[in-house]
Design a binder for these strands. Structure first.
Lengths: 256, 256
DNA sequence: CCAAAAGTGTTTAAAATACACCCATGC
DNA sequence: GCATGGGTGTATTTTAAACACTTTTGG
């Protein structure tokens, strides 16, 4: 099988192409059905899920690796991406933890760089849910969104990594604007609020939220209302890109 | 020479003991003469300074490596230590950049794991200035404190790393208490304020600062005043450890 | 016509800021 | 005795939080 061949090659010779002992894992956040979701890959031969991850080419910038991995899994480039932590506990990954996966392979590898200890550099990404064309990697049979509140069983410390990414994102939310990468171009105020509430995991006052978010100047209201909805149609907004970019740089001393 | 032998061994066989391509660098902050200072090492054969850094033993936790490195350079354990960023640009380190150092060695090494690309995981530490017994490492001839405002020429991206660490510390300051690891056991309110002003790099109002910091409950005033000072003697304070620890965990939604 | 969601402003409380006078000490 | 820095409190402004009624629409 083609993929098995690919995997065998990676086990045997991956260290020639990639830096050993190092991986990059991406926590890809998307927003859908009023849920904050992360993209996870279902490992072959194993009933566990994993973060989209990969290795760093020997002469590839660290962030470049993260962007490449992200593009491979989601088809997207130019997404919001932020490094948040590097995980380096000794027990965090091991050949043991991968045993089940390895045993399911059709070939035998008695030694491989992939059996070594790995440190992983964690990035989180914010992406527009509908724009993602999720594709599994060679280790996986499926790529699916999961509600951050109901994560399935994960390999290694990937559950913890998601938790930490979410934590970083919550803090991030109080410094920088968020949403451009998580919402469609046009969106309503209640949608934006839901996004914030979902990330912060608590309800916000409708009126206070609107006042504060508008005061930042990152939004512009359109002369359009959302069509085809029950009840009163809410206005559509889009981000004021110049102000949004500025706020990304200078921050917006915000407190929701 | 003994040290040269040590270095030669490290060049030749270090990769057996340490993870390749990875280093840990520590930005050690101390506070003295109303200055925020960082500990830097003067490299042998080179007119440049470097952060205290080192490598990760093959079965050593990442943070453990940082603590070991810190203890080796400062003689201190149990200091405040926080990972803040991992630096992985391709051009950040190279054999070229180390050329001068290598040429100064009495032996020749044509190949070494140390010539490879390195990613470095950045930690910053907060330490009590007077408790530090700074000792150079094998690559250095001197270990000295430098004012963060007047950093000397550094190797690689170490200047940038200091800048980023300081930035992280400034943000940190608005979430968590700081000072226990930077000040002597007993200190005065003006001293604490100077520390905050120095880290934030801007003046703070005396009365407002005192009110806010006291309202957190992390301080306890002693029935003692500072002796041997000109002018009115300020009270001495110490940290209320239980409250301080609690604040380290739960944070103190602070805004100076 | 009514249930459900959106639009809009005001009042109140809390927090941040600005500011001034007295006190103790070393010189 | 005076210059210097430390101690203390209040008034003002700004920001956050709480809160209710009206409007629109689909069913």
């Amino acid at each position: 099988m083609d993929i098995e061949h690919y995997i065998e090659e990676l086990f045997a010779k991956g260290h020639e192409k990639y830096l050993p002992h190092l991986s990059v894992d991406c926590v890809v956040f998307g927003f859908h059905d009023n849920e904050l979701r992360v993209l996870l890959l279902k490992q072959r031969n194993v009933k566990q899920w994993a973060l989209p991850g990969g290795f760093i080419k020997r002469s590839e910038p660290l962030e470049g690796a993260a962007r490449r991995i992200l593009e491979e899994r989601t088809g997207m480039n130019d997404v919001f991406l932020r490094q948040f932590e590097t995980f380096g506990a000794t027990q965090r990954s091991s050949a043991k933890a991968n045993e089940q996966f390895i045993q399911g392979l059709s070939f035998k590898v008695s030694e491989s760089w992939l059996y070594d200890r790995f440190l992983t550099i964690g990035y989180y990404a914010l992406v527009e849910y509908y724009k993602v064309k999720a594709v599994p990697d060679i280790f996986s049979e499926e790529c699916r969104w999961h509600n951050v509140h109901k994560l399935p069983k994960t390999i290694h410390d990937h559950g913890e990594i998601v938790r930490r990414a979410w934590e970083s994102l919550r803090i991030h939310l109080n410094y920088y604007p968020v949403g451009y990468n998580l919402l469609p171009e046009k969106f309503t105020m209640p949608e934006l609020q839901k996004l914030y509430e979902t990330i912060l995991d608590r309800p916000l006052d409708r009126r206070n939220f609107q006042r504060k978010i508008l005061s930042t100047g990152i939004l512009q209201r359109l002369d359009e209302v959302k069509a085809g909805v029950a009840h009163k149609a809410p206005y559509l907004y889009k981000f004021h890109l110049a102000n949004y970019e500025k706020a990304l740089k200078t921050g917006l001393g915000f407190n929701l």
